Simulated assay, not measured.
Amino acid sequence: MSAVFCVDTALLAIPSYAEDEIQAENIILKLKEWSDVASNLGRNRVARSSTAELDLGALGFFPGLKNVEDLINFSGLKGVYDAKTVWSTYNNILNRAGILEELSGVDVCKYRDVELKPDLLDGLAPFDLRKLSESMLVAIGFSNYLSGSSNFLFAGASDERCESVDFCAWIEEAQGLNCASIPTHAKSKISVVTRLPDVMNSVKSDELWKSSTISSDFYFAISIRAMEILKSSGKDPSFYDVPRFVLGSEFIQSIRNHGGFGDSQFSGTILDCCARVVLGNPKEPLKPFGRPKQMVRDRDSAKALRSHITSTKVGLRLMVWMKACGTVEIANVGPKFEVMIEYGDDDGSYTVSYGRN
């Protein structure tokens, strides 16, 4: 399981934690970002509580259109944001996000004595809303405790900024995998993402790559590495700055075969090479591939290219198709002594747009 961003139920509530126009607008912007991620990265990347709709409805905080209109009017944002557009972002998260309890395999039913250091929820009101945030943090913290990882991250409603919190609580009742030892005192670390650009402070591309098993995971790791490269050059990047690219249908099998899967010998080098090719700034130049003439794929007229990954005895190469529109398709990795490019299958390839390009 790679990184999963768990949307605070309180972020979906109206009324919210917002006390003024600036805080209200921040919530709208957060919703837009997580809505885009849910649309483009899918149900394995963004999650919500299984009871979010019921909990919000029971408290009278459900984000119906009338409540959204009231939020915009009372916050002085009428004319800045369209109520129906904002309403659709709430609905998109509720409809497209995965379910945390399904992704983690565990459902916490009863808990007590929650401790958070630092306490993200200190001073937040109303109390009922704070309890919803606490419940989400407990579910994330316990999931991380059981998995021994920090794969489940908290996408909070509060503007309190910190990279992580230390979590502990007594879990008295829970259902699902690995719950035989209940009750238990669970301790874990929860990474916190206040806004989407904070992702780089919470997850690292090499760690994502090591835990990746499917195309969407590898795509995400390459995107994060591209952002890390942009940041190292003095930029303040977001996902929208990562050019759209494609992972070919044979890419994962090729890295399994040539030391690029998990924490294998060439994993970090392959990751870095992929990201730099996506950004159009490879360490080693992309050169035409094919003799006597450059290969061209019949179905889309994409041109074959290759770049050096390593200069060791193995001599790994990254094989790429450059589409007519300028989009890079990372086809496969292979050694120089049997270098070839996989034509791939469109149905088995993977791409997202991050809401922009």
Rank of each mutant, 00 (worst) to 15 (best):
Q175W: 11
G176F: 04
S147N: 12
A125R: 15
A125C: 06
A186C: 05
A155G: 11
D198M: 10
A139N: 13
A180I: 08
S150V: 04
K117W: 03
P126I: 07
E172G: 01
G105L: 06
S133W: 09
S104V: 01
D159N: 15
A139Y: 00
V108P: 08
E102R: 08
G148T: 09
L124Q: 12
L196Y: 03
S188E: 04
D128H: 12
A97L: 07
V138G: 04
E163H: 08
E173V: 09
G156D: 06
H185Q: 11
G156M: 01
L177H: 09
F152D: 02
L116R: 09
L129Q: 08
S188H: 05
A155P: 05
I171M: 06
E101G: 07
K131T: 11
N144F: 07
E134P: 00
F154L: 03
A155E: 01
W170I: 11
L100D: 02
D159H: 08
Y145P: 02
D166Q: 13
G123Y: 11
V106I: 14
S158D: 04
V114Y: 10
V106M: 02
D119S: 11
L177W: 05
E173I: 05
P197F: 03
C179V: 14
V165N: 10
C109R: 15
W170A: 13
S133M: 13
A125P: 00
A186L: 09
V108Y: 02
G123F: 08
R112S: 14
D128E: 15
D128V: 09
E173A: 13
S181A: 12
V165D: 06
C109D: 07
G141M: 08
D128M: 10
S135E: 13
A139R: 14
D198G: 10
S188M: 05
E134V: 03
I190V: 12
E101F: 03
F127H: 13
